[in-house]
Each structure stands twice: as C-alpha cells, then as structure tokens.
Amino acid sequence: MLATQAMLEQGIHVEGINFYTGFCVEGHTHAIRKKDKAKPKRNNALWVAEQLGIKLHIIDVIDEYKDVVINPKHGYGSNMNPCLDCKCFMVRKAHEWIKEHNFDFIITGEVVGQRPMSQRRDTMPVIQRESGAEDRLLRPLCAKILPATLPEREGWVDREKLFDFNGRGRKPQIALAEKMGISDFAQPAGGCCFLTDAAYSGKLADLWSARGERRYELDDIMLLKVGRHLRPRPHFKIIVGREEGENRFLEGYRKQFTHLYTISHPGPLVLLDGEANNDDLQLAAQLTARFSQGKMAETVRVELHEKGAAKRELDVAPLTNEEIPVEWYL
C-alpha cells in the first residue's frame, strides 16, 4: 500500500495484481462460519486498491501454485509456507503480466529484513534472479539500501524520493502512512496465507501422508479450512461441521463423499474422506453421534450415504470423550 502510494505520488501509473493461490486468508472462513457473519468480509486487496484509486487484477494461480507448495526449491518456513519460492513465483507471474500488458516495471512492498525467510538482504537478489524480473523489480520502501534498478537508472522513478526501511520494526512505515494520510493501514503482521498456520499445515501434512503422495486439489485445501478433522484410522478421516454455516458449506460436497448425519437428534453433517469398510463406517457413525445433540443418548440413529451405494440407517451408541484419543484430532 505504501509502496504504491509512493509511486502514485511520483506520478506513475500503477495497477495492482493479486494472486489467488487457494491458501489466501481472505473472507472464506468468515463467509463459511455463521458466527463470523458480523465481521466484515471485504477482500483486502480490493479494499486497498479502492483506497489508492488503482485498478486491481485478481489472477487465479491455483494450479500453477501447486508445484510451489509441493516442491519448494528453497524449502519451507516454520510451517508449510514456502515463502521464498512463493515470492519468486509471484514476481515471475507479475513479470509475465507486465510484458503482456506493456507495463515497464514491478513494485512490491518488501522491506529488507522484515521476514526471516523471504525478505532478507541475501534473498532479495534471489527473487530478482529466479523470477526473471531482474532489475525491473523495484522495492520502493527499501530501494535506497539496494542497488539501483532500471526504473531508477532510467529516471522513470526518482530514487531520492524512495526509502531506506530495514528490519522488523514497523515504526517508519507507520510514520510514513500517517504522512501519506493513510489511517487504516491494513498490513498483516503475520503471513498472508494459511500455509503459515501451524494447525492448517499439520492437516495438509496429514493429507499427504495418508494419501502416500504430495498432491492436492482445490477442494482438498478448501476443506482443510472447514470443520473439525479427525483421523481415527490411517485410511480415512472425517470432517465434522461445527455449526450451521460449515454444515451448509459441507453439503456442497455430499455427492463427492460418503457422508453421515444424525436423524434422531439435531447434529452436524460429517464427510468421510478415504476408504472405509463396515467397521469404519460404524465408527464414523458413532463419531457422528458423538458430535450431535444426542451425544448423551443411549442410541442415536444415523443416516449413512455411502458413495455409490443406497442410503442406510444405523442405530449406534455415541462414542464418549474418553473413547476418542486426542491423536485422532488433526
């Protein structure tokens, strides 16, 4: 936001590009969970673009991004976040975009030393090199402590008016935002995606180990954001809706998954992911009963829709808390 404003103040035409990887922490989960209905569901990138008065292009990179998450050349951060590879990938995509649309250079809001993995002094040139953007990549917020780039050398941008921010402290940014008249300076302090989240990363690692291969589809990673996930057996897991909004979201997946819900008592929708034999289905039904309002009842009637089979009804005893090992919870 600040980097863009700095360019706009130099009279440069800027348009924004926002890449959608499928892991972005935008309104999704808020949109799904009913209790979060009151929270604003604005898309941050659109909001920022509107504040700045620039166009924003949102680009779906879901498929291409898989390789970044699955095989990051530079490895992961503290969770499954391949930040350095991710930055290289995004700058490369932005570089392709500017060539196609006749723009001259790319800017990012990076600051040297701000992030342990992707924004270190020694990784800054890696991004330039591996993205192919080379010196058409300008970081206005720390340009003065980096070698001059093409836009600076050509005089398209006045280097003197750029900045020399460095390190994790955000005071200079906040001061600059004030000077620019930007009051709601929405910059996430943590990561910008679910891959930096420990719980989410754990579920992704579980998915890969259960499948025996590192692979995912958009539906997989969406489902990891929703519901309670339990893996009672290595070959199957269940996803339990935690409230109405999540149940409604999970309903959209009924055709693709074996699913269960209680009919004698109100309860959640449960999706079963994996291969389940009759004992497993019985166990899944008992778990479904456990998460329903009939959890204290002696028996609960569960309707089971097995993928590719006729629906069945099962009368089961709900599992008790003690019967559910904590390791089952992902």
Binding site: G27, A49, I54, L56
Partner: peptide, 27 residues
Amino acid sequence: DPGALHDIPAWCRIHGHEIIGTQEQDG
C-alpha cells in the same frame, strides 16, 4: 458466498462497471 456482495461491487467500482441490482433468495 455472501462475500461476493461486497467484493463484486468493489471490483466494479474500481474498474468502472455499474451494479444495477442485487437480489437474495434462499441463500
């Protein structure tokens, strides 16, 4: 997705398109 009620109009404002109406029925 109820988020679209916010995002599509924001996107339209940015790009110079016009929202001529919104309706909601059964979710």
